[in-house]
Design a binder for these strands. Sequence first.
RNA 1: GCGGUCGUGGCGAAGUGGUUAACGCACCGGAUUGUGGCUCCGGCAUUCGUGGGUUCAAUCCCCACCGGUCGCCCCA
Length: 429
Amino acid sequence: MNMKAPRGTVDLLPENTRKWQYAEKKIKDICDRYNFNEIRTPVFEHTEVFQRGVGDSTDIVQKEMYTFEDRGGRSLTLRPEGTASVARAYVENKLFGNPIQPTKLYYFAPMFRYERPQKGRMRQLNQFGVEVLGSADPAVDAEVIDLAMTCYKEVGLSSLKLVINSLGDSESRDNHRNALVEHFTPVKNELCEDCQTRLKQNPLRILDCKKDREHPAMKNAPSILDYLNDESREYFEQVKSYLTMMDIEYEVDKNLVRGLDYYNHTAFEIMSEAEGFGAITTLAGGGRYNGLVEELGGPDTPGIGFGMGFERLLMALEAEGKQVAIEEQLDCYVVALGEQAEKESVRILHELRAVGIKAEKDYLGRKMKAQFKSADRFNSSYVLVLGDGELEKQMINVKNLETGDQIEVKLQEVVSYMKETLQGGTGNE
RNA sequence: GCGGUCGUGGCGAAGUGGUUAACGCACCGGAUUGUGGCUCCGGCAUUCGUGGGUUCAAUCCCCACCGGUCGCCCCA
């Protein structure tokens, strides 16, 4: 029996979930300020959603999908990325008919890709992402990029690089594609195996091939930027000028093409420049996908979005030495001695919690000394000591662990006493 | 899919071809019969990843497999 988590998956234990919650909270708050709303789509979709959405020629569809057949013979796939699902939901729920437009959505969800795990790469990964559907305004492109950069900055990252490019509209892309085929066909046999396939399927991706990077034909390869028609060029110029207006630094990389078929016009990537980050530096990637909604059966609707790897975000924080220290602390630990006191302590614990006090007790039948140790370990501000002696007097001892001061309080009043004391701020500062 | 490296208690980490597998941390108990963070004492591995082989004998040698980790491809 194999009782280990499957390869490429991990358990996130409390020590880590605290960090996740910290980052999630910050990011959700930013989404709210930018007026984005959360969408939650199923973890799996009909396989066609990704085949059509992400594109058959992509690595994701060709070799990375978790595809299975359900008992009804349907082919389903665990989502490898967020955009196709959101676009499908947008069409299915006719969100295009909503009077509030554009539709600004965000999600925080697990994704699945069948790959060999390594640093910063998991089979189940978590992404935060946003999608804006229904506007072809370059200011929206800039807003989405701004949002992504703001998330990183407010969470605490600083060594970032934003890289952008334009893939142009379909006319520009077609012209560029033809130019690429014409350019590379004469040297086809000198290219790597993958690129020979790409030449037929998706010549654009030859440009970011790592193996053929040094090939002489790469240096003077037709750049998409030279094939942008007037409209596409103007669009790109506007996106850039908006970024400049917001003081967002960027670098144009004409070889940035992104791995998914649906992109056009703006494509961007955000990378970490922190030292010791391992082989992986891409933190987030995104772009515009104006034909996607139509491809999935909806009306012709422009869209743009990005996906941000959450594991990588946290790795980057660590690489930059940013500690996300959220110290665990307890208001009050109830030490009980004796059978009657033990029972009474359960009631007190309940009452304390009912008025908003974070409280705990021992459940392992430990001796007093060990119970105090527990209280220390929980970093408790106070300990309430209740023994049969106190119980007889209807009193309870309240001890401040920081000062060591201890006073006796009426059992009946201990909850309100604690509430007052804690609110007075004499506890843990 | 390919390549490097690793696999000893809850964690970290020594170690040897031979009937008791160091040490540190953590944990539990006691010194201290009802008051903590210090100290001292004691306790804490019957699969040394799994299976097979070599050997009188293997945790240690050999092989295979599995798993972790890092890298290639690609990406978040």
